[in-house]
Structures are given as C-alpha cells and as structure tokens.
Design a protein around this nucleic acid. Structure first.
Lengths: 232, 232
DNA sequence: TAGAACACGTGACTC
DNA sequence: TGAGTCACGTGTTCT
C-alpha cells in the first residue's frame, strides 16, 4: 500500500490547498524562484499533519480499547452505544462500592447496641408455608450469649437457616436468618423476636457491668488495627 | 447571539459550497429559473446538516457527562485524560468484583472441610512483640464446637482479636485473627495451630457420623436458597 | 518547537 | 426518509 501518496492527495484536496489557500500564495508555479522553499515548507506541514492524524488515530484506538474492555466486564453487547455503556459503568461502580460498604457495615459490630428484625415474607421461595426473618443485633460479647440465643429461638419455635457471628474487641454482631412456621407465626412475630432480643441484650449489658467494665477506647483502637489486618 | 447566520457562513465556507461544488452546478445565478428550487434544496440540506451537528454535540455531551461522573467516582483529577481514566475504571471494576467475590468466598462455608493458617507477622503493627495469625476453617457444625475452639486457643496461650463464624445448613466457616506472644511462640506455631484444628475437625466429623447423618444435597439446596435471600 | 489531548463538524452507516 | 451513532481529520490549546 502507498498511504504516503494517497494521503497527500487527500490532504491537498481537503485542507484547502486547492481552494482557500489558492487565493493567497500557494499557486506558485514550479518555475517560481520560491518553488523549492515552498515545497519544503509544504512537505513539513504535510508531515506534521500526518503525524497529527496518526496520533489522533492512536488516541481513539486507546480509548476504544478500554471501552471494549468495559463492555466485556459488564457483559454488554457490542452494539451498546458509548454513552449508554458509560452510564452502565457508572451505575455498576456505584453498586459495587455500595455492596462492599454494606458487607463490611453488616459484618462488623458497631459501638452502640442495636436490634434489627426484618420480615422476608415476600422474598421467600419457600412456597409461602414459612415466614423468613432476618435478625441482626449488636452488643457486648459474653460467654453464654450464643447459648441464650439458641434457647430463645427454640422457645419461639424458629429454625435457624443462616447465622453469622462476628466478634471483635469484646463486641459482637450477630446476623441470623430464621424460618418460622405460618401455623404458629404471623407478621406480628417480629415483635416477639424483638422483645426476646431486647431481654437478651439487657442480660449482656448486666454481665458486662458486673464483669470486665469499660475499655471502650482500647476496643476502638483494636478495631482499627484489625480493619487494617483484615483488609490486607 | 445568531448561530443561524454564522453557522451558514461557516458551513458554506467549509463544506466546499464555494469550492468543489462551485465547479458543478451551484454557481447558478439568482436569476436562473432553477434558483428557487435550488435555494429550497440548499436550505433543506443546510437544516439537515445543522440538525446533524447539534445531535453530534449532544452525543459528545452525554459521553463526557458520564466520563466526568466516573472521574468523581474514582476521585480523579479533571486533568486525567480519557484513555487513562478509562484504564483506571477497568482496573477499579475488576478490583471491586474480585473484592466482593473474596468476601463471599471467605464468609460462606464450603462443602468440603478446610483448614487454613496464615502468619501475619510482617503486617502486624503491634511493635513486633506479638505474632498475628489468621486462622480459617470449615467443617460440620456441632453444639460444642465453639467451646472446644476457645479451650484450644486458651491452651495454646493465644488471644482472639477477631472472630467471624458463619453457619448455614449445618456447616460452619470460622475465621479468627489470633495474637500470640513472641515469648512463647515462633513461626513454627503455625503447625501447632494446624494440628489443634485438625483434631477439632476430626471430633466434628465423628459427632456428625453418630448424630444426624447425610443430607448433603438438602444442604446445597438450602444454601442456594439462602444466597438468594441474603443478596436481596 | 514538537507532542499530547480535546472538541468540533462531517461523511458513512444502520435501523 | 430521518434520527442516532461512529470514525475520521482538523483546528486549537496547553505543556
């Protein structure tokens, strides 16, 4: 191929070498005394233009390369247009950020006591025969907390489907997914659960008052140190 | 402002209305019988071109709008060029994906028993007076597992800095970060820990053999159902 | 000066 | 047709 020549023709055709510029000084005959100087200047300009064109092509290539990578990462059709793709990327990055934030937030114990009971009824794929609750609470850790919790759930005739217990620096966060038969339970069971957990937490703070008290700041320090370790 | 007029001038100057086309039929005098028809056609083409130009401007705006959003999300300088920005976005999306994957992988119990002990010595910010271990194991759940684990760690003179216990469908994954004094422990303590955990897991599988056996498939089904619930 | 990055208007293509 | 998108080459600006 001969891009050199065809490019030159293309340029002289487009850039006004035959139009606008022809009205000024470029129509110098080949016999003009300035012909050679002009030719040199023209070649230089042409070369510069060619470099410019090439650089721009490379730049476009670079951008499109990454755009295609993003298309693959989001498993987007190659027909998805750039703006839509980028909008989706923005959304995805936000989602992923939020997700990791939620996971850490939902896993690590907070410094204040919390109780949270959520009814999963509508999301349940259990043929609707059971009610699913998501229980989450946060309190001081104590030796027999787990046992108390299990007894409470047994008493309430609830089955534990999932349990996650995170303990750090004397505080614990427990997340449970429990199932309750609809024969014995309704939506109002949220209250039963909440009350049961309340008394559980009260017992926890009592045992702390009697036993190893204080040390809040020390805990915070540890927590931060651990954050570092865990995230490594 | 009067973009209409200036645009028209701009176009006729650039698009060859005064150059290439002038060599064909466009230099029709205003007195030509075709003047009006030509004028109409020209106006139409001009309007079309103007629409086109506007649409393209809007498109560029849309793309740049999302690019700027991404710049903010990655807290990138406004000077970061498009290609570099997109490269960073690709990297970030990959990282975040990997991160959430790791978190779920490290949290949920696997179907096979596992023991993993990692030495955090180099990462420890504990003035080097203590060795930090990250312990992770996965086995059948049983009532007294936690108690056994605590006794084991007490026996090994290790302090628990962090504990995460996830139980679902009869299987449990436990992640612990423990600290051991360098007076009593060295790097070889990894082996102590591993052996202690081994016997712990052996006791677990024994108790399962004697108690509620089997149900592996049922567990898997539950696990999947839970994945759904948890992610909602 | 040369090089990099950008916005622009345009021709070509698709639905 | 017309609206939408893309790649292209160019002019401009900053370094």
């Amino acid at each position: 191929m001969q891009p050199e020549i065809s490019d030159q023709i293309f340029y002289s055709f487009l850039t006004g070498g035959l139009c606008a510029s022809s009205t000024s000084t470029t129509t110098t005959s080949l016999f003009s005394p300035f012909a050679i100087e002009d030719k040199v200047a023209e070649d230089k300009a042409l070369a510069s233009l060619r470099n410019h064109k090439e650089a721009e092509r490379k730049r476009r290539e670079r951008i499109n390369f990454h755009l295609n990578k993003l298309r693959n990462l989001l498993s987007c059709n190659s027909k998805t247009d750039k703006a839509t793709l980028l909008a989706k990327v923005v959304q995805r990055v936000k989602e992923l950020k939020q997700q990791t934030l939620e996971i850490t937030d939902e896993t690590f114990p907070s410094e204040t006591d919390e109780i949270n009971v959520l009814n999963f009824e509508d999301c349940s794929n259990d043929d609707g025969r059971r009610i699913i609750f998501k229980v989450s609470f946060c309190c001081e850790d104590r030796a027999d907390l787990l046992q108390d919790l299990m007894e409470t759930l047994k008493y309430l005739q609830m089955e534990t489907l999932f349990a996650d217990m995170t303990t750090v620096g004397g505080r614990t966060r427990n997340v449970l997914v429990v199932a309750a038969d609809k024969e014995h339970h309704g939506v109002q069971s949220v209250n039963f659960l909440q009350n049961a957990l309340k008394s559980l937490l009260e017992r926890s703070s009592k045992s702390v008052m009697m036993g190893h008290g204080g040390g809040g700041e020390e805990r915070l320090k540890r927590r931060r140190a651990l954050d570092h370790i865990i995230m490594v």
